[in-house]
Amino acid sequence: MTLMYGYAMIVISGALPLLLYRFLRGPSVPDRVVALEAVVALVVALLVLNAYFLDSSLYIDAALVLSIFGFISTVAIAKYLERGDLFAS
């Protein structure tokens, strides 16, 4: 029954080139940030599906850490775009 998570990983991997196109093409900086944010979401989905598929607790720790880093980096880049300085009050 967990084999369906293996097929799900194949389908979700097929969506990654679409986001790579948007990252390379732009046209603006927030477009690229959105593409990277969606890539992080998809990689978290792939890691969770792999953890379910193998019933292994290792991959889901990586998914937790990656989701935290994705949120922090998105907020940091957005603040840098808006203010021009990360550490201004």
Partner: peptide
């Protein structure tokens, strides 16, 4: 042990993903 951590990821993502989208849209 797998699905407890999955629930933790779920709570975290439900809290943070809309905030990230809002902040990014405002910056754009």
């Amino acid at each position: 042990t797998v699905t407890i951590k999955a629930l933790a990821i779920l709570v975290f993502l439900m809290l943070t993903t809309p905030v990230a989208g809002h902040v990014l849209a405002r910056a754009a």
